[in-house]
Design a protein around this nucleic acid. Structure first.
Lengths: 140, 140
DNA sequence: TATTGTTATACTCTATAACTATA
DNA sequence: TATAGTTATAGAGTATAACAATA
């Protein structure tokens, strides 16, 4: 991949992330990072805070705050760890499942509404790249 | 594009943006947003602060700070506006051109090194999507 | 009076360091 | 003593509101 494409991709990621953040600003909705955490717990099942911190590349104290916020919104609950009294497991609530599967809610969000305005070919390109970008973001 | 793909794309964007930000933390290098501004001035030529703020979807006071920082790093300079005494134009310096065309510098950065580890097919998918994502990020 | 840019201030997100509890 | 999580504190990035200068 040439330099110019990389520079353009980086700018696009940064700008998209900012615009996604602005969509929720002020509202009482999960922030993009919080949505990412909900998504991860859904994909991977119950997880400990430190597992989540490593996966999302934030420090443990930051994950503490994110979990507190999601718990306060009723989207996550804590479950005692089966063998280790220091740890606990984070689980999605029914409210989170509802939020996530509520397609109307999702479709009203910025990203979907903008993707819908792309051409079919462009949408296919983004769809094909989505999984790759997800793997890229996970790389050690 | 189905809901799950959108959710995964959103998480990937948020996570990639965080990891890009962590790459420059503490160093005396342009932040991702600053690089985006440098790239935009390169693509569009000399621009006023308010044009840049609109393009990057930040508020004018935020752009003031970004321009100050880039000017402090010697990557941008101000040029009087030809017809309007209130405005000024922002231009890239030779140092910025050097920074941007220094492929070694670029290639040492996180994004390129990780993209290089993708398979050929994956790299093609990301390359194809890069321009689309850039357009997506620009949409009104 | 309207617009451009800046200053002052505050909020959000995330980090580091120090602390508590359990292994 | 080592590890998981939390509390306290700080910094980066960006926002809103109020102001100054020019159109």
């Amino acid at each position: 991949m040439d330099q110019e494409t990389v520079a353009s991709l980086r700018s696009a990621i940064v700008l998209l992330a900012r615009r996604l953040r602005q969509q929720v600003a002020g509202h009482d909705a999960p922030t993009p990072t919080e949505m990412a955490v909900l998504g991860r717990v859904g994909r991977c099942g119950p997880m400990t805070p430190s597992q989540l911190a490593r996966a999302e590349h934030v420090q443990p104290p930051s994950m503490t705050k994110i979990i507190e916020s999601l718990e306060g919104q009723g989207l996550l609950r804590r479950q005692p760890h089966p063998t280790d009294g220091r740890q606990y497991l984070v689980v999605r609530t029914q409210a989170a499942e509802a939020l996530i599967s509520a397609s109307r809610q999702m479709r009203s969000q910025w990203l979907v509404s903008h993707i819908d305005r792309l051409s079919v070919a462009d949408r296919q390109a983004v769809t094909a790249a989505a999984a790759v970008l997800a793997r890229l973001a996970e790389m050690p």
